[in-house]
Every structure is written in C-alpha cells, then in structure tokens.
C-alpha cells in the first residue's frame, strides 16, 4: 500500500449541489472514489491509497489532465485503488463528477 495526497487548482467550482457521491468498487484492477464537496472554491484534493507502489508520478499526471478537462473545484476525492489502470482511473473520476453534478 502507498498513500499520498495530490492537490490542484481547478478553473472553476464543480456545478451542481450534490454533497457526496461514490463510484466504483475496490475489485482487482478497479478502484472506488468517494467525492465530497468539502474544499473551498477551486481547490481540489485527491487522497490516494493504492495497492500498486511506485506510480505516484502517473497519478499526478492523471489528476492534472483530469482537473484540466473537468474543473472539479471544491471537491475532495478519496480513492481506494486496487491496481486500476490510468484509463479506468480517469473514467471513474469522470463518472464521479458527473454523479455529483447531477445529484439533487
């Protein structure tokens, strides 16, 4: 297990009013992401706990691309990862913000 936190600044706060959402499952090659609207303004925090060691640089690149693409300001992402590949991580992040945006 390796844990670390990645911080980023988004262009804008995430739209919508949903407070929290969860996507994914901690299955092999998969991950779960808990999204909570707990940060201020455009701050983005990503807490990662992953079973795959030595991929911090990849996570940082994935998060940077995602934040550019989606602008999820104000959201904390808490991740439990069981060896998901970067495309799966990106997909779950996108699914997560969509869920949070559209929730009542």
């Amino acid at each position: 297990m390796e844990t670390f936190t990645i911080r980023a600044r988004a262009r804008a706060p995430l739209p919508g009013t949903g407070r929290q959402a969860i996507v994914g499952v901690v299955a092999s090659g998969n991950l779960e992401i808990l999204l909570e609207r707990s940060e201020t303004d455009n701050d983005v925090v990503v807490d990662v706990a992953t079973s795959a060691r030595g991929f911090r640089a990849v996570w940082e690149a994935v998060v940077a691309d995602f934040v550019t693409r989606s602008s999820p300001g104000g959201v904390r992402f808490s991740i439990h990862d069981n060896g998901a590949r970067p495309d799966t991580v990106t997909l779950r992040l996108l699914q997560g913000v969509k869920l949070l945006e559209t929730q009542p």
């Binding site: 795959a52 060896g83 590949r85 970067p86």
Partner: peptide
Amino acid sequence: VETFGEGM
C-alpha cells in the same frame, strides 16, 4: 493494445 498490460 491497452497502454498498460497485466500487472501495470
């Protein structure tokens, strides 16, 4: 090809 194979 998927960019990462078995075991990343």
